[in-house]
């Protein structure tokens, strides 16, 4: 249809009212989302501000009073925390527990997931079903039997024991997650790689791993956070030399009150590392990695 000026008419023009309504609608939603986000961040902010106040100030008033008197802020808590050798040791223990656990889980799970997704062997589906079944086993029921086994093996209380426990209970979910992701990679791609002369390990390294990047990145983040923040397993299996930060901080809790200066600074430090890990890996969450491969 043409107008008297000979131009083609597109979609009918939106009226001024409908545009105002649309603008209001979308901006109201945005404002609401920002508010919820800020509200969500409040405890973290409180923790951060508290960690920057002296114990006396914390005992006398709430952290929000800082808004009126910024002068009370100090880095003393962090300085004393880093001077405390047992806390520094627990920080390194946390790293010694978390990094190997995460790496071992990702390495074993990606290999196992490839086998479950793409290799033919007898009993494969039953075995996978078993792995999925293990997802529902709560780790609490295993604490005592494993403690007995560790006692017999002589690794009770050591970092190795804690790492092994995390690996054991992290694997079912890790395999489940990666297997489902790998299984979604088009079969044609693997067959093309086979026709191109690839052996299984080459296909795994040069096709599956690069394409599985997003899943492996998210698994790494999850696993890192879980192990980093774990209290229960470390509380049961780690002795005083092996205790991670979570246990060290928990021991600062008292029945009446707490060493708020140590806890707030330590807790904030223990939050920063996972955040760094998250931001380091989140760039791998690329949308549409498969685009252009088939069709």
């Amino acid at each position: 249809m043409t107008t008297p000026h000979g131009e083609y008419e597109g979609a009918p023009r939106r009226t001024a009212v409908s545009r105002v309504v649309g603008f209001l609608g979308s901006s109201i939603v945005q404002v609401l989302l920002v508010c919820i986000g800020l509200f969500w961040l409040m405890p973290t902010l409180g923790l951060f501000v508290t960690s920057l106040r002296s114990p006396q100030d914390n005992a006398a008033s709430g952290w929000w009073t800082t808004l009126q008197e910024p002068a009370q802020l100090t880095l003393e808590n962090y300085a004393s925390l880093l001077d405390n050798p047992s806390f520094v040791a627990s920080f390194f223990n946390t790293i010694l527990i978390t990094v190997p656990s995460t790496l071992i889980i990702v390495a074993i799970a990606s290999l196992a997931a490839y086998a479950f997704a793409w290799l033919e062997f007898p009993g494969r589906d039953w075995l996978f079903l078993l792995v999925v079944g293990l997802l529902v086993v709560p780790l609490q029921v295993a604490l005592i039997p494993i403690a007995q086994i560790y006692g017999g093996a002589g690794i009770y209380g050591s970092i190795l024991g804690v790492v092994l426990f995390h690996v054991g209970f992290g694997l079912p979910f890790a395999i489940f997650l990666l297997r489902n992701f790998f299984a979604a990679i088009p079969r044609d791609l693997l067959e093309a790689a086979r026709m191109d002369g690839g052996k299984e390990h080459t296909i795994f390294r040069r096709v599956i791993l690069p394409l599985g990047g997003p899943a492996i990145a998210s698994l790494t983040i999850f696993q890192f956070l879980w192990v980093w923040n774990d209290l229960l397993v470390a509380l049961v299996f780690a002795d005083a030399q092996a205790q991670p930060m979570t246990v060290a901080l928990q021991s600062e809790m008292r029945q009446f009150g707490a060493n708020l200066d140590v806890i707030s600074a330590g807790a904030f430090l223990s939050m920063v590392v996972p955040l760094v890990v998250f931001f380091a890996f989140q760039r791998y969450f690329v949308q549409g990695v498969m685009a252009g491969s088939v069709k």
């Binding site: 088009p186 044609d188 093309a192 498969m290 685009a291 491969s293 088939v294 069709k295």
Partner: peptide, 9 residues
């Protein structure tokens, strides 16, 4: 292949 099966990465 019908789907071309190009390596997307």
């Amino acid at each position: 292949f019908q789907s071309y099966a190009l390596y997307p990465h």
